[in-house]
Simulated assay, not measured.
Amino acid sequence: MTDPIFHMITGGPRPVAPFSHAVEADGWVLLTGQMPTDPTAPDAPLPDGVVAQTRAVMRNLEIVLKGVGLDLSHVVQMRAYLTEFERDYAAFNETYQSFFPADRRPARTTVGVTALAVGALVEIDCVARRPAGAAP
């Protein structure tokens, strides 16, 4: 096993806790859960509603993935956390699925939680796999 690489992405979302944006080992890239914050204005209010927040979270995941030379097509697993599961699950799914072709959706778990950092309605983390032979 190679030593892990700890990635902090320049221009990436400001961390809301002490963590790396991503950690990579042996071609596996684990992304920290992203919040619906704006990387260009991290103190701005969060977008209104789960649809806008889901889009913001997915954009932040794309920023981190791009920072390590990957994109959503490399994602093999995602975990989503919703604070208003029953209310927001359908709208979340509708928005989430727009980021992936129907035949290339990652494995996913969605969990209802009581609260998330920064008062977010949604947070998503993921695991990506670097293509064989591709450098980190």
Rank of each mutant, 00 (worst) to 15 (best):
21 H>T: 04
25 A>R: 15
25 A>M: 13
27 G>T: 06
27 G>R: 05
29 V>G: 06
30 L>V: 11
31 L>C: 10
31 L>I: 01
32 T>M: 07
32 T>L: 08
33 G>Y: 10
34 Q>Y: 05
35 M>C: 12
39 P>I: 03
40 T>K: 13
41 A>Y: 08
41 A>G: 08
44 A>H: 08
45 P>G: 07
45 P>Y: 06
46 L>M: 03
47 P>L: 08
49 G>V: 03
49 G>P: 00
49 G>L: 02
50 V>R: 00
51 V>G: 01
51 V>Q: 01
52 A>T: 02
53 Q>C: 00
57 V>M: 03
59 R>Y: 11
60 N>V: 02
63 I>R: 14
65 L>V: 04
66 K>M: 12
66 K>I: 08
67 G>T: 07
69 G>E: 12
69 G>R: 04
70 L>W: 06
71 D>R: 02
72 L>C: 04
72 L>D: 05
72 L>F: 09
72 L>S: 09
73 S>L: 06
74 H>P: 08
74 H>A: 14
75 V>P: 10
75 V>E: 06
75 V>W: 05
76 V>D: 09
76 V>C: 12
77 Q>L: 14
78 M>V: 07
78 M>D: 07
79 R>E: 14
82 L>D: 00
82 L>R: 01
82 L>E: 00
84 E>G: 02
84 E>I: 01
85 F>I: 04
89 Y>G: 00
91 A>D: 01
92 F>V: 01
93 N>I: 10
94 E>N: 01
96 Y>T: 05
96 Y>H: 03
99 F>T: 05
100 F>V: 07
101 P>N: 13
102 A>E: 14
103 D>W: 12
108 R>S: 13
109 T>I: 13
110 T>I: 09
111 V>S: 07
115 A>H: 09
117 A>K: 12
117 A>E: 11
119 G>N: 06
119 G>Y: 09
122 V>L: 03
122 V>A: 06
122 V>S: 06
124 I>G: 03
124 I>Y: 01
127 V>H: 12
127 V>G: 11
128 A>W: 05
128 A>D: 04
129 R>Y: 11
130 R>N: 10
132 A>H: 15
133 G>A: 12
133 G>S: 13
134 A>G: 13
134 A>D: 15
135 A>H: 14
